[in-house]
Design a protein around this nucleic acid. Structure first.
Length: 210
DNA sequence: TGCATGATTTACT
DNA sequence: GTAAATCATGCAA
């Protein structure tokens, strides 16, 4: 049986693949396909938008900036694991741990397009159009069905599967979104997306223009 | 022990 | 366009 067309040009990364600077790693995740097998089925998403976060002491926008805590402990571990966190009282967001162990770098998965398990993703997000199913960090987590309890999971082992592009996609960069301006962290161009991809979130473009 | 806040989404005017 | 929903986390006290 042939591989699905959505997996063309994809290869499974090894552990060492994640062991590099998150700003270099983030664009390599564009076009990658992340899948999660939940009890009620499997959904896969092709990533179209990500953000890089550097580690403790150097990136004011990072959860790890002020040092290791119970919440961000996973970021200080080995690359290729999942950092899932709960925010705004109702949302889960997903990150890929990057860099050498101890650097506490991560990459936030901001958006993507459902390429497998479409019906299941629709049932999890009945109020979304197909385009909106995984467009946005919390929507992506909900479409995949990844619970907060999956924090720390190895993305290279079941129930997860991750395949990245053998040839990186063309991409654009810009400022990260949703970060308070403290320290100018929001101005770093560490947001990466695939131009024209429907899974790119474009809200909050001009938060303060008059 | 208590309180301010957030890597957001959704609904409503 | 603006505002509400909703709670774990982290820091002050």
């Amino acid at each position: 049986m042939p591989r699905p067309a959505s997996h063309a040009g994809l290869v499974a990364p090894d552990r060492a693949w994640f062991r590099r600077d998150p700003v270099a790693l983030a664009p390599l995740l564009l076009g990658a396909v992340l899948a999660y097998d939940a009890e009620d089925g499997r959904v896969a998403v092709r990533l179209s938008e990500v953000e890089a976060y550097r580690g403790v002491g150097v990136d004011p926008g990072s959860h790890a900036f002020r040092g290791r805590t119970a919440r961000n402990a996973v970021m200080f571990g080995e690359g290729g694991h999942l950092y899932a966190y709960f925010t705004y009282g109702m949302h889960v967001c997903l990150n890929v741990v990057a860099g050498e162990a101890g650097t506490s770098a991560g990459i936030l998965l901001r958006g993507g397009t459902v390429v497998d398990g479409l019906d299941l993703a629709r049932s999890r997000r009945p109020r979304s159009t197909d385009r909106d199913l995984a467009r946005g960090p919390a929507r992506l987590a909900q479409a995949l069905g990844v619970p907060l309890a999956a924090n720390g999971s190895d993305l290279l082992a079941a129930p997860f599967s991750l395949e990245v592009r053998s040839a990186p996609l063309a991409h654009e960069t810009g400022p990260r979104t949703g970060i308070s301006g403290a320290g100018g962290a929001a101005s770093y161009p560490w947001r990466f997306w695939v131009p024209g991809d429907p899974g790119v979130s474009v809200y909050r473009r001009h938060p303060k223009s008059h």
